[in-house]
Amino acid sequence: MNYIGIDIGSTASKVCILREGADPVFEVLPTGWNSKITAGIIKDNLLEVLGTLEDSKVVATGYGRISVEYADKVITEITCHGRGGYEMAGCDCTIIDVGGQDTKYIQAVNGKAVDFLMNDKCAAGTGKFIEVMANRLGLTIDELFELAKVGKPIPISSLCTVFAESEVINYMGEGKSKEDLAAGVVDSVALKVATLVQRKTLAPTVIITGGLSANDFFAERLSEKLGKIVLPMKDGRFAGAYGAALLAKEKL
């Protein structure tokens, strides 16, 4: 039996295949504009690898979860991240998921999400903010992080992504360096994420999942803001898909 987790996020879609006695296999592709089409592409890929889905259990998660018509069960990304993050951390933990359109705090105990919080005011503390700012600075996201490492952060105080963009434009007009602005952008997201999760209790182990999870520099900035070590996770962006696959195994 194969257990498959599919996490259709706002920016990227992640797939995890769990087979008896084998390490989990992860795959990522851009979600694009139509999550139904993405779900179809994933199905084709799965069929190529597995030949058939008949001896597979599929759990879909993420904002596009309902688009996966061949899923046996649909579970929210919060429960899936809780399960996958717990497995990756190897113990009870707090999971901070910085996604493309939202940021989540999840408290995982025994592999179960017992408490969670999501940003609801705006996109300021999410991957979207970094994407918008990188665009404005004419950089890729990776380039932005590289520059940020050597810059001295310029505080970006606007709470709103749109206003923050104008703020950055003003700084650009003043001739501030790209390095300092890039550092400011990363700092600003780290601060907003920290502010959100500090409303809740943090477990002794705190990990990052989602698109920024493998980014040591971001983990460092976030640790500083929280006054607590936050562990980056190499495959953290697959936490949702991994959790979905694990839940397919356990619940179906």
Partner: peptide, 14 residues
């Protein structure tokens, strides 16, 4: 509505 639905579903799952 969809964002809230995600939260409510997740809450019910917990």
């Amino acid at each position: 509505a969809q964002q809230i639905k995600t939260r409510v579903e997740a809450f019910i799952e917990t």
